[in-house]
Design a binder for these strands. Structure first.
Lengths: 200, 200
DNA sequence: AACAAGGTAACACAGTTGTGCTAAAAAGGA
DNA sequence: TCCTTTTTAGCACAACTGTGTTACCTTGTT
């Protein structure tokens, strides 16, 4: 009977407006009215889809990680293990404008989540994503090891943690100084790090 | 003639109140009045030392990096090059409560700085600190190389970037998951990374 | 054509925001 | 003692905040 609107799509549209506001003016500017204006609707309309602001915030944060997960999941594991590993890891890093935007927003949420310690779900969400990336690193290294591509005697768990830290660090650098840490440079550093772990 | 108050110390005191607010409730809660209450003064008093909020924000951000720099500068380069390098790098990472607090605040500022691109001085400040840490990595590696401790044929510039990314990544992990990325664990990973670069 | 439910916009309200302004307090030199 | 300068507190104002409520529009089924 009602006017048919894709509820989920609308929510994502609003969340993306939030992203733009956060990216342009910082999370401090992310008020209901600002976001509504950015999305091109009234504040009332936004509040229909998100009864309160916290819900909007956490939905928008969730959307960031969902987008990344979708992209990573869409990767087809073809080619040799090294190529596959590089493709996966690169996909998780902000190497183009779209992903850089997502990363900026993610950073803002992460900083906010540090504050809401104890209560908020934001903090748990950061944890989940963080663990997910570490597990991806572990999985990739393990499959490299299974292929015999890795040097023997490597402590896989340790190398996964090191790789994970490197990925996060490179991502930060790519976001902060995209002119210096260009996609090509970052890719090169990542590849060379993996070569470091290879069997001679 | 006037009441004598250490102007600089007062400003730092207020900035530290800002830190506590940012850490407890996020940067969104960092209003003049909130900070004044946290510091135990009236809003008017705070505004005497910081005419506007932006000035307070950037001073507080600057104070974070100044504190880190002070600590790093206070390190006495005694012992062998490896020990020295580890001491320096560890000092830049959030391995105790005080530094973890600083890092949380720094993260919030960094996220905010991403937004104020173009105009704000915050962004340049992030750049400066970022470059400073990279140069520290370069310097430390070079002195290791001069000692003959490093493997020959290493691209020092590349290794400095890799080390820098690792430091930043490990710092993030230490802040996000202090239970998993304990100081001991982080130190161990850092040491093992350096050993990777050592001459056989 | 009428209806009922989903969707939209607008207003109200109390609280908070940044900042400008003013008056009082504090404190050491004259 | 008074006086000058720094320091502090408080008020005022317009703008903005999150959220509650209400009335209206839109739409597909009956």
């Amino acid at each position: 009977m009602p006017k048919i609107v894709d509820h989920a799509a609308r929510r994502e549209e609003i969340a993306e407006a939030l992203w733009r506001v956060v990216r342009r003016d910082g999370i401090r500017a992310a008020s209901v009215r600002t976001i509504a204006a950015e999305a091109g609707w009234s504040a009332g309309a936004v509040r229909y889809y998100f009864p309160d602001q916290d819900g909007l915030l956490s939905f928008a944060m969730d959307l960031v990680s969902r987008r990344v997960t979708e992209r990573v999941s869409a990767i087809e594991p073809k080619g040799n293990a090294t190529t596959i590993a590089l493709r996966y890891l690169e996909e998780a890093m902000p190497l183009d404008a779209e992903r850089r935007a997502e990363f900026d927003v993610w950073m803002a949420f992460m900083a906010q989540a540090r504050a809401e310690s104890g209560a908020g779900g934001l903090h748990e969400h950061v944890d989940t994503v963080h663990n997910g990336l570490r597990e991806l690193c572990e999985t990739l290294l393990r499959s490299l090891a299974d292929d015999g591509a890795l040097d023997d005697g490597l402590d896989l768990r340790r190398e996964a943690e090191r790789l994970h830290a490197l990925i996060d660090g490179l991502s930060l650098h790519a976001a902060i100084q995209p002119d210096r840490s260009t996609p090509a440079r970052v890719r090169q550093l990542l590849r060379q790090h993996l070569e470091t772990l290879m069997a001679p």
